[in-house]
Write a protein that binds this DNA or RNA. Structure first.
Length: 1006
RNA sequence: AGGCGCGUAGCUCAGCUGGCAGAGCGCCUCCCUUACAAGGAGGAGGUCGGCGGUUCGAGUCCGCCCGUGCCUACCA
């Protein structure tokens, strides 16, 4: 007898999550032979905290990881975080602004220090949240996209791609954010339909005798026009091609990007990309501020005149408009044109405007020098298409396959450089003397100390000029990602696997540097690597231009797009580019769970990088989960204020309820509409489970396990519940195999509540609470006592066994409560339920006869209850029941105690004829009669039966019609015809009975 | 402009290969029966968005339309 009291999710979850982390239950310590299941978490951004989407993502992965683990696989689930370049910089920048500081005044180095101060705060908040959700990740392998190992992997990747000719640098059109002051990739541009205006402007000919009218949505860009283009076959303009126009307003010198002066006399060019049907068919060309104009400008060798600065203010090329914001400039330009009579008309015009995904600022298309990854190259693209077409990478639901393929087919090169400070700095050093682009990675150096120091410099951890003490300090300080180890330990574990014996101290370093200048260091590459400055007592790590040998190198200022590093995540976390054991064991990963919004940003790019670098797909299955919306179907966002904070839900309803809710709402291919009520509902489920456990524990004898051999044979209801459990296990496993989370959760809910609790536990009370008959002779009393004891053992054992397996089945969904209950059971023999096997379908444990019997019993009980309710007999009042049964007679006898108890009967008596003054009811062949009491109202019963009769008649009619149709009899399969005939018979029988009942009732009323 | 998805009970959604329309929540009635009122028992509620087609038979397959959501796009 043990009472676990009331369900308190807070206490349980707090205690258990701490325990799991402390015991490092889910850390893979040694790599085992045999099946493995490996997953990398989509690293959350270190910008804030987790939202419901993260909670869903983590829940689904955890369900699968726990499930696979319990199915005997070695599960490696790697957690980690993303440095999120622009987003993080934006967040920290805003914080500084609130304190009245400015990033630009502060400078790069100081600003980065601030970011490094802030990031761990956000990161530990996120980690804490993940722990609260109960995720079974391997914290010992936690990674960060900007940790020492990752940064090195990024440089390595950059180098390989660069050397393969897949990365190039050049002046191209990019989308520029005037607020974040950086270029963005095409994907980071959000298109939004807006109401705009189309301005028709007259451009006079060189001699002023005629003009061409062009249409534009952005009149201010005319200041940067260097041509007007028309379609070559456009009859209206054909004769004018080659002639020149005088660009209005521009009465000042304009300079192209190469410094040359550009005339305000601009040519009319012919280009088939112009759409004659749009506007006037003549389009002004601003090669420096429009993507299509840029293309056209390139084909026609037109000059590029930039008229705006990085803040999107007009620059000196805009003459009198210089200094104005682009929108003010637009107003002024239009005013002036109008005054000059050059504005023909203005029309309303809807068009799509590109905005920054982060700050929603309208982007400015600008030409600038950027780095690109040639993803359109066949070496990347064709393989990325192939692996998905061949099913090596599988999308679930499948509909995303097409989305992916379509996008990859239309790929354009990826702008990977960002003009921000937070991120992986591009490992390129320009020679100030010969202009050579030098790429350095630690592979340029073959000694460990050189590699280490190079990486520290490249990561910005130390300056290029440093003291050995600084190096020592950095390497011996706590690692950012794993504070339990030093940076040096981190290097040994995650970066330089081969050099695990390396020791570093200022003293050893000094020795090493001195040795370096020693004449015995014969190789020139090694010689003079460190230059000592006796004044400052610093060493300088010398990089030399690979072409001219100059030491005057300047590192590239730009950093890489965050997604460049995220794309390396599935192998970077396992130590790549080192060939580690982990990499061999866990790559390719088995599964990626993510939202559809980053299929292009991330999923596709991981496929690019994985297939390029490792010649293997990064993951086999990609499960694309739903987007979480609010109850009105709106996207959740902080600005709308409709977010539901997962932490609040965990606090109020528990992580188990949160997880179960998200799982049961996860239907493939459908977004989730969430309201707080949902969580409440499934907290009730947790409570129900808890109380079932409480009941079972309270009714287990302390020495049950040792008395198991003395149990009585099982009763049909025992076999029934075992069968139902078995079928549930089968369905849940099947559902999880096909990623049907909702289906699996529903099966479990249904089993626990509607079968175990509603029926089996009720049945079990008959034996648990059985009392011996009084007044028996001593021997008989003893024999009865023994029999009842044996029955008790059996029912307790069944309760225990069924409940124990139920907990295991439910564990992946509700890890905390199942762990807590499971540990309380006398059968708990492992560290955690999560390390016990997952119940599987067992064909031996299928008792179909018992299953049929109990299902029939339930029908009978329900029909009696229904009649009672119609007659308004209070649930607690016991009544006497007469019955007449055909085939069901033996069943009724077999389950007499069950009927008495669950239908609240004080007597159950078989009769031949309907007793007088009774109301009748039936369930198939089982007819029963309840004695009429004074004051019973029959009205509801009559209407209930009438409704039933109508239904039956309707159904009867359709079946009758179907069977009288010759074509049905001829064409429908024989089986179907038989089924219909049988149903018709049953309906006829039911109809007759209901009619009789109604007749009887009408007499009663008389 | 193209592409994808969704319209089933008051709400949120199941309904796989066509064969008697389901669940949860909400609602109504009765009950604090010793696991659980975070509960129990019973019940009401549906022209499956519309039209047409295929079929013996359509919520399910096909076409068109209406409504709605999203993604992609270099329409100045």
């Amino acid at each position: 007898m043990k009472d676990i009291g009331q369900y308190d999710h807070r206490e349980i979850e707090k205690r258990r999550s701490r325990e799991w982390v402390e015991k490092a239950l889910y850390s893979v310590r040694e790599l085992l032979q045999g099946e493995r299941f490996s997953v990398v978490i989509p690293p959350p951004n270190v910008t804030g905290s987790l939202h419901m989407g993260h909670a869903l993502n983590a829940t689904l992965q955890d369900i699968l990881c726990r499930w696979h683990r319990m199915r005997g696989k070695q599960v490696e689930w790697v957690p980690g975080f993303d440095h999120a370049g622009i987003a993080t910089q934006y967040v920290v920048d805003r914080q500084l602004q609130q304190k009245g500081m400015s990033r630009l005044e502060m400078g790069r180095e100081e600003f980065l220090k601030k970011v490094w101060e802030w990031v761990p705060i956000s990161r530990s908040a996120i980690r804490e949240q993940l722990e609260k959700l109960g995720v079974s990740v391997d914290w010992s392998r936690e990674r960060f996209t900007l940790d020492e190992g990752f940064s090195r992997a990024v440089r390595h990747a950059f180098r390989r791609l660069y050397e393969e000719g897949l990365i190039y640098r050049g002046q191209y059109m990019v989308s520029w954010c005037p607020n974040d002051l950086t270029a963005l990739s095409d994907l980071e541009v959000e298109h939004e339909e807006e109401e705009g205006k189309l301005y028709y402007i007259r451009y006079p000919s060189e001699d002023g005798s005629w003009h061409i009218t062009v249409a534009t949505t952005r009149p201010e860009t005319m200041l940067g026009d260097t041509a007007v283009a028309v379609h070559p076959e456009d009859e209206r303009y054909r004769a004018l091609v080659g002639k020149r126009l005088r660009l209005p307003l521009v009465e000042w010198k304009r300079r192209a990007m190469d410094g040359s002066e550009v005339s305000p006399l601009i040519p009319i060019v012919a280009d088939s990309r112009v759409k004659p049907e749009f506007g006037t068919g003549a389009v002004k060309i601003t090669p420096a501020h429009d993507p299509l104009d840029f293309e056209i400008g390139k084909s026609h060798g037109l000059a590029m005149v930039q008229v705006m600065d990085p803040f999107a203010r007009m620059n000196e090329n805009a003459g009198e408009f210089a200094g104005l914001d682009r929108y003010e400039a637009r107003k002024k330009v239009v005013e002036k044109l109008e005054a000059l009579g050059l504005l023909e008309k203005v029309e309303r015009h809807r068009h799509a405007v590109g905005k920054c995904y982060r700050c929603k600022t309208v982007l400015e298309p600008t030409v600038s020098t950027q780095w690109f990854l040639k993803v359109s190259d066949q070496r990347i693209k064709s393989r990325a298409l192939q692996v998905v077409r061949e099913g090596l990478v599988r999308f679930i639901p499948d509909s995303w396959t097409k989305v992916y393929l379509q996008w990859v087919e239309n790929l354009r090169d990826w702008c990977i450089s960002r003009q921000i400070w937070w991120g992986h700095r591009i490992p390129v050093w320009y020679c100030e003397d010969c202009g050579h682009e030098n790429l350095f990675t630690d592979e340029d150096f073959d000694r460990v100390y050189d590699k280490l120091i190079f990486n520290l410099i490249a990561d910005g951890k130390i300056d290029q000029e440093f003291t050995p003490e600084e190096v020592e300090k950095v390497l011996h300080s706590n690692s950012f990602v794993h504070p339990e180890m030093t940076v040096l330990d981190f290097y040994k574990k995650f970066v330089f696997h081969r050099y695990h014996s390396t020791e570093v101290s200022a003293h050893l370093l000094r020795l090493f540097f001195t040795q370096d200048t020693n004449p015995t260091a014969i190789l020139t590459e090694k010689k003079d690597r460190y230059k000592y400055d006796p004044k400052k007592k610093t060493y300088r790590f010398v990089l030399r231009c690979k072409r001219c040998g100059s030491e005057r190198l300047r590192q590239e200022q730009d950093v890489l797009d965050t997604w460049f590093s995220s794309a390396l995540w599935p192998f970077g976390v396992f130590g790549w580019p080192e060939e580690t054991e982990e990499l061999k064991k866990f790559y390719p990963t088995d599964l990626l769970v993510t939202g559809f919004d980053i299929i292009f940003f991330w999923v596709a790019r991981m496929v690019f990088m994985g297939t390029f670098f490792l010649k293997e797909v990064p993951f086999r299955d990609v499960y694309i989960h739903a987007l979480i919306r609010d109850e009105k179907g709106q996207k959740m966002s902080k600005t709308k204020g409709n977010v539901i904070d997962p932490l609040e839900i965990v606090e109020k309803y528990g992580a188990d309820a949160l997880r179960f809710t998200l799982a049961i709402l996860t239907q493939q291919g459908r977004d989730i509409r969430l309201s707080e009520k949902r969580f409440e509902g499934y907290k009730h489920f947790a409570n129900k489970l808890w109380n079932a456990g409480r009941f079972i524990l309270m009714n287990l004898e302390p020495d049950l396990l040792s008395r198991l051999p003395y149990g009585a044979p099982p009763r049909p209801e025992d076999l029934w519940i075992l069968t139902r459990l078995n079928r549930t296990a089968q369905k849940v496993n099947r559902a999880l195999e096909s990623y049907e989370f909702s289906e699996a959760a529903k099966e479990l809910y249904e089993f626990v509540w509607s079968e175990l609790c509603d029926w089996y536990i009720e049945f079990s009370k008959l034996r648990l609470y059985a009392k011996p008959q009084e007044g028996l002779p001593p021997e008989q009393a003893k024999a009865q006592e023994e029999r009842l004891q044996a029955e008790k053992i059996t029912v307790q054992a069944t309760l225990l066994s069924v409940f124990e397996r139920t907990l295991r089945l439910l564990h992946p969904f509700m890890p905390f409560i199942t762990e807590e209950l499971w540990q309380a059971l006398p059968t708990a023999h492992r560290e955690s339920v999560s390390l016990s096997p997952y119940p599987q379908y067992n064909p031996q444990e299928l008792y179909e006869e018992a299953e049929r019997q109990v299902e029939r019993l339930k029908e009978i009980i329900s029909s009696i209850r229904s009649l009672r309710s119609d007659l308004h007999i209070e649930p607690s009042r016991k009544v006497k029941l007469y019955y007449r049964a055909g085939e069901s007679a033996p069943l009724v006898e077999l389950f007499r105690p069950h009927l008495l108890s669950l239908a609240k009967l004080e007597g159950l008596e078989s009769v031949e004829e309907e007793p007088p003054k009774c109301v009748a009811g039936f369930s198939k062949d089982f007819e029963f009669f309840l004695p009429l009491e004074e004051g019973v109202k029959l009205q509801e019963l009559v209407s209930s039966y009438t409704r039933r009769l109508q239904e039956v008649e309707k159904q009867f009619k359709t079946f009758q019609e179907r069977l009288s149709s010759e074509s049905f009899l001829k064409r429908a399969p024989e089986e179907e015809v038989q089924k219909t005939k049988q149903s018709l018979q049953e309906l006829e029988e039911e109809k007759r009975k209901v009619q009789t009942l109604l007749q009887a009732l009408s007499k009663v009323r008389l």
